[in-house]
Amino acid sequence: MQHILRLFILLVGLFAGAGSYAADAAPKLTTPDDLGPQIEQPIEFPHFRHAGDAKDGGMQINCMYCHTYARRSMVAGIPPVQKCIGCHQSIESVRDKPRIQKLFEYWDAKKPIPWKKVHDLPDFVRFNHERHIQRFYFQQDRPYQEVCGYCHGNVKAMTVAQRQKPLTMGWCASCHQKDHPVSANSTETGHGPNDCFTCHK
């Protein structure tokens, strides 16, 4: 009997070990509190100031005011410097803040700001902002904070944006396999495309 017990413990241990290793190795599907790495940007853009709630001193600007391409293009796009200047040239109160001065330096030199990519998918992945905005923002009529925040996290509370969600394939797919109502007041549902080819290029 001893042998049996010994063998049993050995085998169970092996399985348990391998299983827990595998479970640990797989990235977690959602990591609400685990922020991605901090990225140094040329200008420390305070998202919380622009997009944050009024009670926190934010201006509650719609994401798509600046990231205007999101609804009509694959990429959300970074606003041209012109856009920043458009507002800031008439906001005298913050004119001498170091970040704003930096901004005007770029503008005066007519140089684009070399922003770093935060939500950077691998080259062989095709992600389409337009499709998702159309589906969830326009058709399903959800609040933009929720729609954008689903992938980008709670940007309105961040200064420089940080990656909050894993953005891995399994994470994408976990949502694609869910049924979502096709429009705001419809009971009909549909899910995202299953074809590998839709997202892989």
Partner: peptide, 18 residues
């Protein structure tokens, strides 16, 4: 080959005016 998400390695295409 590179299957992981890269944070902050690439620069975004941005313009002064557009």
């Amino acid at each position: 080959g590179n299957t992981s998400i890269e944070d902050g390695k690439e620069t975004v295409t941005s313009y002064v005016t557009l």
